[in-house]
Design a protein around this nucleic acid. Structure first.
Length: 295
DNA sequence: CTGAGCACCTGAGGGC
DNA sequence: TGCCCTCAGGTGCTCA
């Protein structure tokens, strides 16, 4: 259930629990994800130490001690669960016990539906990649070739980096015939803005999603850049619901979903002006906006 | 080159 | 209960 904020939070969590772990064994239960999981994933990970974890766009990258890097993408429904063969206390002090599919207190070899990759790690931990729709991806390549990888070579800049600013976006919007919503979701322009936050950011910037990109004024572009950064940062700070899934608290209604202003709020009153939120379809995906606040 | 549409999948939820 | 339809947080490919 990942947009950038969730992948960012997941990466941070994984970083704190997996850094310096050794991969003892990797089992591929099902190899047909978005692309075929490399058959030598097991051989290339066996005995390697996890040195560093980081994120690029919505990809999680795990650098290993043996010059390889694992690339993970969660697609629409991918999850990473960490099982621990002992009583597990979460960061906020709660003890997890309400999820059948995660902590089994001793019987942690039990395989759940849609578990595709299982990594046995040192420190009594097991990493499980689960993905019902299988739009996710796992690959492994030489660390030095990361940037050349075809998944990364065409990607635009990170929205939270300083280089993503009004003058950058202004240049990118020149001659764009697509809608502004499609444009900010275009990975070649900026990465990591998914369907939820595209709608949310455009609401914050008071711009209709179906405006042609070139029609935005400089002022609107400035507002939009700030809105994208703000909405992503807020969502990261709110923690992601996938993090809660990751640490196995089933709390889908909580987290940042409460912060949505327009997403999935068709026909509900706008929190700002009371007008009813409208839903339209753009390139086959739903967009939500307030017809009165957004121009 | 661009942009729209489609394909890849399973599962949840609504209508009948 | 069950069948059928629509929809879902992503992204790369094809075609015009």
């Amino acid at each position: 259930m990942p947009e950038l904020p969730e992948v960012e939070n997941l990466t941070r969590q994984l970083k704190s629990s997996l850094t310096n772990c050794v991969i003892l064994d990797t089992k591929i239960l099902f190899n047909k994800l978005r692309s075929i999981v490399p058959a030598d994933l097991s051989a290339k990970t066996k005995g390697a130490k996890i040195l560093h974890l980081h994120r690029r766009a919505k990809y999680i990258i795990i650098d290993l001690s043996n010059q390889y890097s694992i690339i993970i993408h969660l697609g629409m429904t991918g999850r990473i669960n960490i099982k621990q063969n002992e009583h597990n206390v979460l960061e906020d002090g709660e003890v997890s016990q309400n999820r059948s599919c995660s902590f089994n207190f001793g019987s942690w070899h039990e395989i759940q539906k849609h578990d595709h990759i299982i990594m046995t790690l040192s420190n009594n931990m097991t990493l499980i990649y689960n993905d019902p729709r299988r739009f996710g991806l796992i690959d492994i390549i030489n660390t030095k070739d990361l940037l050349k990888h075809k998944l990364f070579s065409h990607l635009g800049i990170e929205p939270l980096e300083e280089e993503f600013n009004a003058s950058y976006l202004f240049e990118k919007l020149k001659n764009k015939k697509a809608s502004i919503k499609n444009t900010i979701m275009d990975n070649r322009v900026i990465v990591g803005v998914g369907n939820i936050y595209a709608s949310e950011a455009l609401f914050l910037a008071h711009i209709r999603p179906d405006r042609i990109a070139t029609s935005l004024t400089k002022k609107e572009i400035e507002l939009l850049v700030l809105a994208i950064k703000e909405i992503l940062q807020k969502a990261i700070n709110a923690g992601g619901s996938s993090i809660r899934d990751f640490v196995s608290i089933d709390n889908k209604k909580g987290g940042f979903q409460k912060l949505f202003s327009v997403y999935a709020k068709t026909n509900l009153p706008c929190s700002c002006c009371g007008s009813y939120i409208k839903k339209i379809t753009q390139s086959g995906r739903s967009s939500f906006f307030c017809p009165s606040c957004q121009k």
